[in-house]
Every structure is written in structure tokens, then in C-alpha cells.
């Protein structure tokens, strides 16, 4: 026997009372509250978003003013980086190969795998 069966008669009395409550006016009232909440949330999120966008827009003149300096620095870095990197990489690779020639074989195998995968991908 379920525990609820011991007082099923009383439960039925309560259920009759509850089912007599009209559902529609209450449901309408709740859903109006839900819509109000939704609108308020949208207004808060929207206003915060606008405020953020305004702050970001206010920073643009400063960004443009410093653009020339940034552009020069980036161009210099991009021009010098490949030669520095390749020199360093060749040096490191030759040091590794001199210490243990097995590294060269591993690097060659890895390069072959990458080539094979990329060739199949294109096909």
C-alpha cells in the first residue's frame, strides 16, 4: 500500500477544493507578470549594451590618433621577425641534429605525414 492511500479520502476533499479555483484569471495575471519581467530584462540588457557601445565608440578617436605609430611598429616587426625566427630555428635544428641525428629522421617523418594528409585533404 502506498503511503498516500492511507489518506486518499482527505486528499480527494482537498483536490475538489483546488479544482474549483478558476484557472484563467490567475494564469493571465501570472503571464502579464512574466511579460513585464521579460520587457524589463530586455530594457536593462539593451541599455547596458548601448552604454558599452558608447564607451567603445568614445575610444575610437584615440585609437585612430595612435594608429600611425602602431602601424609602423607592426610593419617593422613583421619585416624582421621571419629572418630572425628562421635563423634561430635553423640554428636550433642543426644543434639538435648534431647532438642526435635521430631528430632529423623524426622531423622528416612528421613533414612527410603532414604533406600526405594535406595532399589527401585537397584530393
Amino acid at each position: 500500500m502506498r503511503e498516500q492511500d492511507a489518506y486518499k479520502d482527505l486528499s480527494d476533499l482537498f483536490r475538489v477544493e483546488d479544482s474549483a479555483l478558476p484557472a484563467e484569471p490567475f494564469t493571465r495575471q501570472v503571464m502579464q507578470g512574466v511579460s513585464r519581467q521579460k520587457m524589463m530584462r530586455r530594457a536593462i540588457v539593451g541599455s547596458l549594451g548601448l552604454a558599452g557601445a558608447a564607451i567603445a565608440a568614445m575610444q575610437l578617436p584615440q585609437l585612430f590618433a595612435e594608429w600611425a605609430g602602431v602601424d609602423k611598429t607592426v610593419t617593422e616587426v613583421l619585416a624582421t621577425a621571419p629572418s630572425e625566427l628562421s635563423t634561430a630555428a635553423v640554428n636550433q635544428l642543426s644543434t639538435a641534429a648534431a647532438n642526435n641525428p635521430m631528430w632529423l629522421a623524426i622531423a622528416a617523418g612528421a613533414a612527410l605525414c603532414v604533406f600526405a594528409v594535406s595532399a589527401f585533404e585537397r584530393a
Binding site: 483546488d18 479544482s19 479555483l21 484557472a23 484563467e24 490567475f26 494564469t27 501570472v30 503571464m31
Partner: peptide, 9 residues
């Protein structure tokens, strides 16, 4: 809400 309002109220 319609289904459970009676019980909750």
C-alpha cells in the same frame, strides 16, 4: 501554470 495553479494556490 494552468495545470498546476490549483495545487499551488
Amino acid at each position: 501554470v494552468r495545470r498546476h495553479q490549483g495545487k499551488v494556490r
